[in-house]
Nucleic acid binder design. Structure first.
Lengths: 332, 332
DNA sequence: GTGAAAGCGCTAACAT
DNA sequence: ATGTTAGCGCTTTCAC
């Protein structure tokens, strides 16, 4: 049988409250008794039962992480960041996969609340008012990672996608490209709402390049989608000087379409992606892209949650992390 | 305040035991009372507290998953498999990242036991006797995913790496290659213990090709490592007809080294990888590789655990899943 | 078929 | 400084 606080108390010849006091350092205990208890704990290998503890404290040492897709390449990095900070403060991760469905999100929010998690990191494509309400009424520390976080009065961490996108487009323009296609890796909502698209558009405007809607294309976030989009352009003989895709996978798909059709990258067409997933530097030509600090986003989120748990002061509700333009072969 | 079983009981005018009986279907309850209780539950939105339940049942609806590296591309897929089966039976995932360190593994095993998890999926490079002992004495259903699972009397799921490796090597030989390099993505233990190496070696033997140790190289699992290994061969002017790497990333690294040195793939050197990570089909030339059914490994593991929990019969302790040789551009 | 009561392992008043 | 006790929310004997 596993040893309980009762066993320890009996063996040390003290009451269970005393044992509780030494394991939690919650109240002074005379040093000889403390030593005796500690000795018994060591001998028996006693570990406080976290479930019982959670029940009375109404808090567990668990951070719930809600994500739309575990198998996504970026999510692993994000989890890594959360985990690494979490472990420093002794928090474990309960992972919830929603497939981006709002009902699943709601379901998991309630589940996490019923499990008395210490905090929630909520990752989603688009943050919905319903989910925000569900989380906020739970009175659980939460950090949101999602496009439209600043539309709500919530804690979030993100990067300035519009600015990053603007910078990449400007960079492409400065390289002498005028006909720059934009491949958007999402068909969900209106492209006009997309930060990345806004940045692209603004950069063109600022350089007096007219927006050419025939090369602004939408697909999903797969490389296949990027491939199809580029192939379409090739078939229509509407080949741009450069393609800026709002996701690396799409960019690589597009790159492959050109390569497969004997159109040289970067000689005949430049390609730029977004996110700097591992693959970006592994393909040839290697992909110019915006490096989003996804590990850091996870780490900062976890850090924020822990600060909230400990009632420490937070500097700001919305944290914006810096990005980096990774200049590689595909645009040079 | 959140509503408890007590509240429901009071509102329905019954005892808490009756409420417990209806929510668990554990004992017959007259239908009118049952309806009354159900009605109150619906009205109040009552959800049984899983923590309290775990405490008394000494079991939670959680499957602990211990992995060496969350950010690894394959792990995401594996988690996906576990999650998808888990959710069907209402199990959640507690994720533990060990960095491959055995102390961490041990720590998490104990943590999971103290949390009364329903089962453990244990993923590791090499399974150690200590970890096996720690898990088995916990009397928790567990499934192991690791190279040397069959050295122990434990439940495991894997694929026949030796056979897969043999087949790939044979395939390369049949394509007319004799000088086939082997890049091993691990420096940890003796290469002679490696299943993949054994398969490679055996295939050469069976084709009367002498093993050339000068092209059997070890590095780590990164593409950089593959790059260095290949570069080394190039500099020594010891270029093989084909390279078989025991990991896709290493294979791609090697491929890049050849490409960067104007050695054409597959015209001048063929490349084959292992695992079929997402990138494998995205690079150009696309990579011939062994597709390991990593999602299925996760799904089957979860299914086994659930069968064990439910005391269902299991066909066999070691489950071997089929692989597929993905024939792509890099060898044709 | 239903309720009362004990107890899971722990924390936190409340006494002393 | 230490012990006694109530209680967290639930399941499960044990009576009736």
């Amino acid at each position: 049988m596993t040893v309980t606080i009762k066993d320890v108390a009996k063996m040390a010849g003290v009451s269970i409250s005393t044992v509780s006091r030494v394991i939690n350092n919650s109240k002074p205990v005379s040093s000889d008794i403390r030593d005796r208890v500690l000795k018994v704990i060591k001998e028996t290998g006693y570990v406080p039962n976290p479930v019982a503890r959670s029940l009375v404290m109404k808090k567990s040492q668990i951070i719930g992480v809600i994500v739309p897709d575990i198998s996504n390449l970026l999510i692993g990095e994000l989890l890594n960041g959360i985990e690494e900070i979490g472990r420093m403060y002794d928090y474990d991760i309960l992972l919830c996969n929603t497939y981006g469905e709002i009902e699943e999100e709601l379901k998991y929010i309630n589940l996490l609340k019923s499990k008395s998690v210490a905090g929630i990191v909520f990752v989603t494509g688009k943050i919905d008012e319903k989910t925000v309400n569900a989380i906020e009424e739970g009175n659980v520390p939460a950090v949101y990672i999602g496009k439209n976080a600043k539309d709500f009065d919530i804690y979030s961490v993100s990067i300035d996608h519009e600015k990053a996108s603007y910078e990449m487009t400007k960079y492409l323009i400065e390289k002498g490209n005028k006909k720059i296609a934009f491949f958007r890796a999402s068909i969900e909502d209106n492209i006009e709402d997309s930060e990345r698209y806004k940045g692209y558009k603004k950069a063109l405007e600022d350089s007096n390049i007219e927006l050419d809607k025939s090369i602004v294309l939408q697909g999903d976030e797969t490389s296949d989608s990027g491939y199809m989009l580029a192939k379409d352009l090739i078939e229509k003989e509407n080949i741009p000087e450069a393609v800026f895709a709002s996701s690396d996978e799409v960019a690589i798909g597009a790159m492959n379409a050109f390569i497969d059709n004997s159109i040289k990258v970067p000689e005949e067409v430049k390609i730029a992606g977004y996110d700097d997933i591992k693959i970006a530097s592994m393909v040839r030509p290697s992909l110019t892209t915006i490096k989003t600090p996804i590990y850091d986003i996870g780490a900062v989120s976890a850090r924020m949650i822990i600060k909230m748990i400990n009632k420490e002061q937070l500097d700001s509700k919305h944290i914006i992390l810096p990005y980096t333009l990774m200049n590689r072969q595909s645009t040079n």
